[in-house]
Design a protein around this nucleic acid. Structure first.
Lengths: 232, 232
DNA sequence: GAGTGGTCTAGACCACATT
DNA sequence: ATGTGGTCTAGACCACTCA
């Protein structure tokens, strides 16, 4: 039994409400018994759940299950795109632009050569067929060698991970608020000068190479981000 | 040698630029040797740095040090308050309101009894003597038995941790953008209808009990949040 | 005092990157 | 082939909570 498997199993059980009666996970010895796992495995699995904010530890007392209600929120630490954050809703994209060009002035942000080839993708993202966000994204062709309209209209991250087989590592994000200009306000069905929640996102592969930079303008009445922070 | 100590030492060394030449930490065996530590200790220490985004692992290759430029940004996972995010700047607060009352309608958010006693604190937070944010915070008197104007004008979190000796556990945050009303716009030196970056913050003790809930309206031209996300 | 999670030791073998 | 980090075993003792 590997600890990632165990973490997955426990996560599903928690989401199904299995431990809602006691509010606690079984103790380490109990989990070792139940899953025929070593303490190493059990503790690593639980550590993953702690990082996700699903449980918290109280020494001498147990692992307590958290009541997380973050429905309708975008998890800012999320590895998952919009698609998986809104179950029961339709998430789609309207492609505004898809072009291949040289990085040029964007080479500084992408940490690549000035003449490196990139895909530039602009999309209007829709939630239940209503404008939700405007996304501008750059992908280094070195890592994402092919993109077409069909792929760019769906989940680009799913394509990158599942079809291209790239393993993502980490991402830096900047979050701030700005006034919308006319063009973007029109796309979102808002007025110029209305607020926008803006997220700049630099994404890296597990190898440490940046492969994607994006800037997203969210509809301020529809988008709320959720964050779980460890204060220890 | 405890792993938290080692993590602290390595963190300081990284910040001083000690590993900038190679861009990598020493290998595990080297660190074990250098600090007379076991592999358990070394790996746990490094795991803490990975969580903070200071290094990232590449299996078979090493632990790479990241170039983090987050100056002038508020770390959204930060355990530290504003005070420590802006070194070289003056951070102060102008107390707007400090009162003691019953939770009442706020009991739902604070997960406490309706007649639980709370401190309600409103502050205008200043960066270099300019309005930076408006903060509304509630503290359960059960855990924060005393607050006065002097404490509320300084770092309340430092008081809670260092003077009251409470150990904080985790926090949930919601981040969104809104239009400012006249009152808050005046306080921030902005106009009604201008954007505000809003953060709702529910903070828990290590025991899992919520002790603090806050809502902060940030000046949209001055506040930018930074987030580091693990995509693995 | 019994039971909980937290720290630690001293090994072994595996997966991956580099030479 | 070697060296790197990742997984795993099988223990021991410590810190803390709770009855």
């Amino acid at each position: 039994m590997k600890y990632r498997e165990l973490a997955k199993i426990l996560k599903v059980e928690i989401d199904k409400g299995k431990y809602r009666d006691t509010g606690k996970l079984p103790t380490e010895p109990e989990l070792m018994e139940q899953f025929g796992a070593t303490r190493y495995c059990v503790r690593n699995a639980i550590a993953m759940l702690v990082e996700l904010g699903d449980v918290y530890p109280v020494q001498g007392s147990g692992m307590f299950v958290r009541e997380n209600r973050r429905e309708g929120c975008l998890n800012i630490n999320g590895t998952r795109g919009m698609t998986s954050e809104f179950p029961g809703h339709s998430v789609s994209s309207k492609l505004i632009k898809l072009e291949q060009r040289e990085a040029g002035a964007d080479s500084a942000r992408l940490k690549c050569a000035v003449d490196a080839k990139v895909y530039s993708v602009s999309r209007l993202r829709l939630l239940d067929d209503e404008p939700f966000a405007i996304e501008y994204a750059l992908y280094l062709k070195e890592f994402v060698p092919y993109l077409n309209e069909e792929i760019a209209s769906g989940s680009i991250y799913a394509y990158i991970r599942e079809d291209l087989g790239l393993s993502t590592g980490f991402a830096d994000k900047l979050i701030y608020a700005r006034e919308l200009d006319h063009g973007r306000a029109d796309l979102l069905g808002l007025s110029a000068g209305d607020p926008a929640l803006v997220v700049e996102d630099d994404a890296y592969l597990a190898s440490g190479r940046m492969f994607n930079a994006g800037t997203v303008y969210y509809h301020y009445k529809k988008a709320t981000f959720f964050n779980f922070a460890d204060l220890k």
